[in-house]
């Protein structure tokens, strides 16, 4: 079998939460359990879509895969090498060039006082030795791809609209032609027409450059367009994993079903009903109770769901669900 490009092994991430000095003094430090036992492989050339409830740990997982954040437990391997064990500067620099991240909030990742030209030339100056002319050509080419104008290169990055900033962040991540990117909501600030153009561009990169991607988005329609496989996370756990087709045609976890049924239609004449999800308060990440992570929102719970936590198990080849009822 093919060996994975990215291997995520038994990953936990718990953030300590100190409510105040007294709690700390009393030794009562609680933790926010952002990720709990994630195992996931991403194969070369594949796009894995990551969806899940807001706050369930998607961005955290992305940052850990990039090696920007350290997990509490578990590790990430890139081409079989643990990234937390890379030692030499040379190795780290080499990997930095091959894997890139587009952060969720472009506005806060760009230095507002740098000009567009400075923002885009930075990655090139770290990794290449280009003449001025070559650099300008590259930058012009990049801007053109996403509908920005070379005439804007002297504008400060703080002077762009949020959707323009998002496109700047995207081409900066793509500028060094990485093999793998973590794209965290990379098109969330774009209107439908620019979004369609950018998505077509990403599709083209998948095909022509065999770009491997961890694609995080809350927009299932987009995830469907770009992803080969989809992982659905709830409260820091993978609850369903399968090919894009299977997730859309035969979703088995009640949360996945809820997600798909909540997509709003553009015609207000067609009424949507968000069925399958209870209006109960979501579970706390501080003390995740025994049993299934989805029990409070689920309509088909039984006694077992309250006591045991369902493991991810394969229903059909490549399609796994963590639910006792399916």
């Amino acid at each position: 079998m093919l060996s994975p490009f990215i291997e995520i092994v038994n990953l936990n991430k718990h953030y300590p939460l100190s409510l105040g000095i007294i709690d700390r003094f009393a030794g009562d430090v609680k933790t926010i359990k952002a990720l709990n036992g994630i195992n996931l492989n991403i194969f070369k050339g594949e796009t894995l879509g990551l969806v899940g409830e807001s706050g369930c740990g998607k961005s955290t997982l992305g940052r850990i895969v990039m090696g920007i954040e350290t997990p509490t437990e578990g590790f990430v391997k890139v081409e079989g090498k643990r990234i937390d064990e890379l030692k030499s500067k040379h190795e780290i620099k080499a990997i930095r060039k091959r894997i890139q991240m587009v952060f969720q909030n472009p506005a806060s990742t760009l230095d507002p006082r740098m000009t567009l030209h400075q923002v885009l030339s930075e990655p090139f100056s770290i990794h290449y030795n280009l003449t001025r002319n070559e650099l300008d050509k590259r930058i012009e080419g990049l801007l053109e791809k996403v509908g920005l104008h070379y005439g804007d290169r002297k504008k400060l990055s703080g002077e762009f609209s949020d959707g323009q900033k998002q496109r700047i962040a995207l081409i900066r991540a793509l500028s060094l032609e990485p093999e793998f990117i973590v794209a965290d909501e990379p098109v969330s600030a774009l209107d439908v027409s620019v979004q369609a153009q950018i998505l077509n561009l990403m599709k083209q990169l998948q095909k022509e450059m065999h770009l491997t991607m961890l694609f995080i988005s809350h927009d299932l329609k987009i995830v469907r367009f770009l992803s080969d496989r989809i992982a659905v996370i709830y409260l820091g756990k993978i609850v369903e994993l399968g090919s894009t087709e299977v997730i859309f045609k035969n979703p088995c976890h009640p949360y996945t079903q809820g997600l798909l049924s909540s997509i709003l239609d553009i015609d207000p004449g067609l009424t949507n009903h968000q069925f399958r999800i209870k209006a109960d308060v979501p579970l706390s990440q501080l003390n995740i109770p025994e049993g299934c992570v989805f029990q409070m929102k689920c309509y088909s719970t039984n006694d077992r769901c309250k006591k045991e936590s369902p493991e991810l198990r394969e229903l059909t080849r490549g399609h796994s669900v963590a639910c006792f009822e399916s």
């Binding site: 969806v51 409830e53 807001s54 969330s188 600030a189 809350h218 949360y255 997600l259 909540s262 709003l264």
Partner: peptide, 16 residues
Amino acid sequence: DEPTTALDSTVQFKIV
């Protein structure tokens, strides 16, 4: 201004 860009569909539904 773009109030639901980071919300999954179930939460977006509630916010709407």
